[in-house]
Amino acid sequence: MLHKRLYQFLIVYLIGLSVLLGFKYGLSLSDYVIPGVPMIWKAAEGASGRYVADTLNTLGVAVVGHMISIFLATVVGILGRRRSWAGSMIRAAAYNIQAYPIVAVAPIIFILLGDGPVSRLLIAAMICYFPLLLSFMGIFSEPVKDIEHFFNATGRMNWRLQVKIRAFENMRKLTTVIVGSATMAMVGTIVAEFIAAANGIGYSIRIALYQSDLAKILVALFYIGIFTSLYLFCLEWAGFRIEKRFETPKEGRG
């Protein structure tokens, strides 16, 4: 799984780089517009240490933000699964709020909370929270009738059992949604850093942008891709282990 993730990223990265270099050499653009391979290599040698640290800093914030949003989406998804007016209200609110581009409120967060890690964390969590919430509410509010019928009929059903049944039956969907939202958490953190923060790889990209240093930006993108792939692999591996633990071997069916 890990090597697949890394191969996928490296292929995309190298294609992107090749296109850029193709433009450079095809249109005879200067190193100032698009740097050549030696300049990129030099930038990598000079900035790698700092960029790795910055990317890890960003990843740390993204991971915590992602975990917070998973927790919140689970809690609100469980509350929103109910058919009561409260459940309906939570669902309607979630659907309406998620329609607004959350990143647009990032400046307000920076004004109110400053440019520290709390702002980055909040923005990362908000950006991946709503897609997670919608998926979780969809999963938790959809009855698994063929399993739940017995527990309902015999009066054994409670909210914990209901959530357990629905989560278990949709484990693959949940894993896919969580893995998908991890990229959004990383994007959210980088965007937050890019807008106003004074830390992380997004901040470093902003500085490189002000210096019009595309070589450094390409190096930063490389490390973002590598570490994001590693995080996605960890999530996929965890989901795979959970699925494997409860997987039903198909052999022996009569």
């Binding site: 063929d146 399993i147 019928h149 017995f150 009929a153 015999t154 357990k164 049944i165 278990f168 039956e169 409860f246 039903t248």
Partner: peptide, 13 residues
Amino acid sequence: ILYSYNTERLPGW
């Protein structure tokens, strides 16, 4: 009154 039908399933855990 209990109603059982043939496509019911048990939890897999």
